[in-house]
């Protein structure tokens, strides 16, 4: 593009910019930038949420966060959730997507069935599963009794609660990633696969050498959503375990809520929010640099 043309474009764009930019900019500033800035400010105060923060405590809130065993559990849990999302949920979604992406009879029905959990509200899904995991009335208890074992109370057992939560997470979100992969698969040119088949590539080789490389942008997107979604996990945990028992299922956000908001320590909660924000920002930028670099 020539410089002159570029400048002329900018000029004709000016009225449009003046008209359409301010509302968006204003909203973004008021609803995103200001709250982030405020949280950063509160995080240096010991503040109950009443009145104006006056008790400046410096870095104490951040120091306290680092000392909470529950926060360490939350961090580790977040990492476990990310690992499970990437190592179990993602391959499962990809595998199912290859099965139901083709236009064969019945594929649409299965796509709908697999996608249904994702449509369900998080809190509703959490409640349903909390009933299913109940040792007295739930399905897990009934199965255990039928097999002659004592009924387990998985959500009440600090050693098993996280496993139960992970099952629900995978069940809830694999459908979303499957849909991403279906879209990706349908974007692959059929002649490419035909050509590979003619060249003598078997099913696995076609998947490994043709489909997978072409799906790379979709996989990158799916990983990105998995990680950010895992870091922000909250709604599903609350109806299931509230982060318990004995903090064994805390995530960073449930930690923020339980130890910040419900204890009326808005300053401390803000500090947790700042930590989470930094983790997300660092991840988002380094991920972008690492994975999108080789595309350009």
């Amino acid at each position: 593009m020539s410089v002159a043309l570029g400048r002329r474009r900018a000029w004709t764009a000016a009225p449009v910019l003046l008209l359409f930019l301010p509302p968006a900019l204003l909203l973004f500033t008021a609803l995103v930038v200001v709250p982030i800035g405020e949280a950063g400010w509160y995080s240096f105060y010991d503040w109950s949420g009443y009145g104006v923060p006056t008790n400046f405590v410096g870095w104490r809130n951040f120091f306290l966060i680092s000392r909470y065993p529950a926060f360490h559990t939350a961090l580790i849990n977040n990492l476990i959730i990310i690992a499970v999302s990437l190592c179990i949920q993602l391959p499962m979604a990809l595998g199912l997507a290859t099965l139901v992406a083709s236009r064969i009879r019945g594929a649409l029905v299965f796509r709908l069935i697999f996608f249904l959990p994702y449509i369900l509200a998080d809190v509703a899904a959490g409640l349903i599963w909390s009933f299913m995991f109940d040792g007295d009335y739930g399905i897990t208890g009934a199965i255990a009794r039928a097999l002659g074992f004592p009924a387990p109370f998985v959500l009440a057992d600090p050693n098993w609660a996280l496993v139960a939560v992970l099952v629900v997470i995978v069940w809830k979100y694999f459908g979303f990633h499957m849909m991403l992969f279906i879209a990706g698969l349908q974007g692959i040119d059929a002649p490419l696969l035909d050509a590979a088949a003619i060249d003598g590539a078997n099913r696995w080789q076609r998947f490994r050498r043709v489909i997978l490389p072409l799906l790379r942008p979709t996989i990158r997107l799916s990983v990105f959503f998995s990680v950010i979604g895992s870091l922000q996990l909250f709604d599903l945990i609350m109806p299931l375990t509230k982060g318990g028992p004995a903090d064994s299922t805390q995530t960073i956000v449930t930690f923020l809520y339980t130890f910040g908001i419900t204890r009326m320590r808005v300053g401390f909660g803000s500090a947790v929010g700042v930590v989470l924000f930094l983790i997300c920002v660092v991840f988002a930028f380094s991920y972008k640099r690492l994975t999108f670099r080789d595309d350009e």
């Binding site: 040792g135 959500l155 009440a156 057992d157 600090p158 609660a161 318990g244």
Partner: peptide
Amino acid sequence: LKQLTDLKPFQDGWLGH
């Protein structure tokens, strides 16, 4: 309290109820 809880006096699944 520990004397009491050592006897396991609560219902099954009490930690989640």
